[in-house]
Every structure is written in structure tokens, then in C-alpha cells.
Design a binder for these strands. Structure first.
Lengths: 194, 194
DNA sequence: TAATTATCTAACACCTTGTAAATTAAGTCT
DNA sequence: AGACTTAATTTACAAGGTGTTAGATAATTA
């Protein structure tokens, strides 16, 4: 998905892309415990030894992929518009960008979010959303829940888990609603509850 | 944690308990990818071959442990009272029972919920809570969010993910609030938002 | 005590991991 | 284009994990 910034040897980019694609491929077919460096290398048509030139082991590879996922999301969300619709406020537009980004890379997200046993990706998304929710709460903007009498910590846990959990369920169920509709539903949840 | 119902050879109970304790023990010390049948057996002072007499492999062991976790929770939640407090309604009492059960077995839940990479347990809890939330929604009782205009599916995803996510964060942060306080906070979230 | 059943021991073939050294291939730079 | 640099490949190795077998030993049950 993401491209390295400074001129990088194309062989490196090619190899990493092949390895990552092979991993996503395999994850569609089997549980992560059954995936070995052997299988990844074989599927990527890359020598097994080469894998170790790029990643320490499979968990290390997952972490780097999760980093890239977050980077790409930040880019997509900050890139903003491209979806003119005067009824949507700033927050709804950000959520729309996020959901559309996920929908565009459905194959990837379906695999890493829907597969049980790859919680790293969900963890990272949760962390990212917690930060957003916490900022919103501190800025006094309407939160996703009524915060009157509710401890701030708990409100943040509650709202961010609700968001990520809904998104994961949405992806797992093959995105039965459009990104725009889901973003609007989130806005409803946000504005009705204050 | 849980005991088998029909008279079972005490050697079986002993072996399984030793294996499960060893596993929880190891999970406190290392990531799950580093845990092998070898290590579990060694820590449990059980022969490695014996492990295979009880479980097909480690994922199978995890599944059985998750089943038992859910069984134990159902028992604890249905056992109800033991916490008289007239201000609490039925739902709040059920939540209180759940949180107290988790607090009682903090060592276990801390390990299986807080450890990244053991999502089976979280998955099972989510499934359980989704069922509860869906029933509540269909019975017309107040949900955890304002459901006016919100698709039922989405409301269920949202509320159940919020609950399980909050509980996981609560456990990961070493339960900084009492079960009763957290149960009350959930009630606030529930009653304020309708 | 005898019969049953669980656990242990030893051994097996096979797969996976992580690393090393030497060779080949591809990309970069002037 | 040719020299230089760096990536990928090949081959090899030791250590450890997996899942299964068959027979011996120990604990439980009736």
C-alpha cells in the first residue's frame, strides 16, 4: 500500500510488496498460526532467506504492516474533501474519508480486520480513534455518548471501542451499508446523545 | 476455573488444570507465538504427549478455555443477587455480577483480555454481549445509545462493542474503578441516551 | 484384588526457525 | 558503457517444535 519516501532500490520495494501480498493472500486461506516464513516466501516467489533481510520474523512484519496501514489512513483522512455535500460537518467528512479508504482497500481490511487472531491492526485503529475521541471530548464538542456524570476515561473507552467495533463488524459483514450511510449513522449517534 | 459435571477421573481434571494454569502462567511472561506445547507441558510438569491426549493443539486448547470462560460467566450472571442495593435495576445487577466475576478472576482475565494476540476470548465475550444487546433492543428496553433513526444492526454493533471495549480497557488498566461504579456508569450511559 | 484407564517413556519423520558464507543478479553513478 | 554497490539466491547447518506410535508404568475404580 504505502510507498517509501526516499529513493529506494526498486528491488526492495518489489520484494516487500510481494511478501506483503503473499501474506494477505495466505491469510485469506488459513489461520495465522499456520502461516510460516516458508509459506510466505514460497507464495511470494522470494527466497526464504530474503525474508529475513527485511523482517525479523512474522510478528515484526505484522507490526510494520500495521504502521503502514495507520500512515495510509492518516493521509486519506487528512486529504479530506472529494466528497462535496453541504449537509456534512467536518467530523462526518473525516469519518467518511476513513470509511471510503477502508472500502477502497476492502480486500486488505477484510483480511486483517475480519480474520480473528490478527488483533494488532484493530489495536492500532483503536488507539488512533481513542486519540481522536479524547481530543473531541476535551475540546467540548459533542461526543458519541452523553458524558454528563460519566468519567472521561470511561467515555473515551466507550466511544472509541464503539466506533472501531462497528467498523470491524461492518467490514466482517462485507460492508452492507455505504460509507456515506454509515458515517451519517455515526453522526446521528453523536448528535442525538447529548 | 470450571469443573466437569459427570464424575471424571481425577487424573484428567488434575492434568487439565495443570495445563491451563501453566498456559496462563506463560502468557504472563511471553507473547503467545513464543508458547509451545513443549513449554506448556514442561511448566505443567506433564509429559508433552499427554497434552495431545487432551487437546489437538494450542488453538484447540484456547477454544476450550474460552468455552469454559463463557460457561462460568453465564453461571455467575444468572446466580444474580448477593449484592443488595435497591437503587439498581435488573440490568445493572447483571452487569455488576459480570464485572465482579471478572474482578474475582482478575489474574485470568488480565492475561487473556489484556494480552494482545489472544482475541478468541474477546470475540466470545463480544458475541455474548451482542446477543444481550440485541434482545434488549428487540424488547424495547432502553439501549445504550439513542436508536432513533439508527439501523438496528448498527446499534447492536455499536453498543456491544462499546461494552466489551470498555471492559477490556478497564481490565488492561488494572480495574481503576470498582465493579459497582463501572456498572453505574454503564447505567448512566444507558438512561441518559434515549 | 483385578480390570480399566491415564500418564509416561522413547523413538520417529517432518517441518520451521534463524543464521552464515559464497555466488549471482540487478540497480546506480560517473 | 563499465565500474561499483547492493540485493537476492543458493546451500548448508544446528536447534527446536510438531504430531504420532507402541509399549511400560502408575493411578483409579469396581
Amino acid at each position: 500500500m504505502s510507498q517509501d519516501k526516499p529513493r529506494t532500490d526498486p528491488r526492495i520495494l518489489r520484494t516487500r510488496q510481494l511478501l506483503k501480498d503473499a501474506f494477505v493472500d495466505l491469510l485469506q486461506e488459513m489461520d495465522i498460526e499456520k502461516i510460516s516464513v516458508n509459506k510466505i516466501a514460497e507464495r511470494a516467489t522470494i527466497n526464504r532467506v530474503t525474508f529475513y533481510l527485511h523482517y525479523r520474523d512474522i510478528p515484526d512484519m505484522l507490526e510494520k504492516m500495521a504502521d503502514e496501514m495507520i500512515e495510509d489512513i492518516q493521509l486519506a483522512v487528512n486529504r479530506e474533501p472529494a466528497h462535496p455535500n453541504q449537509t456534512e460537518d467536518e467530523d462526518e467528512l473525516a469519518m467518511l474519508s476513513l470509511l471510503e479508504h477502508i472500502a477502497e482497500h476492502a480486500k486488505f481490511f477484510k483480511v486483517v480486520l475480519a480474520s480473528r487472531r490478527t488483533p494488532i491492526f484493530t489495536e492500532r485503529l483503536l488507539r488512533m480513534l481513542s486519540e481522536t475521541v479524547r481530543q473531541r471530548l476535551e475540546s467540548g464538542r459533542p461526543s458519541f455518548v452523553n458524558t454528563a456524570g460519566v468519567q472521561k476515561d470511561i467515555a473515551v473507552w466507550y466511544s472509541s471501542a464503539a466506533l472501531i467495533g462497528t467498523i470491524v463488524s461492518w467490514v466482517r459483514n462485507d460492508m452492507p451499508y455505504s460509507p456515506r450511510f454509515l458515517a451519517q449513522q455515526f453522526s446521528l449517534l453523536r448528535t442525538h446523545n447529548q
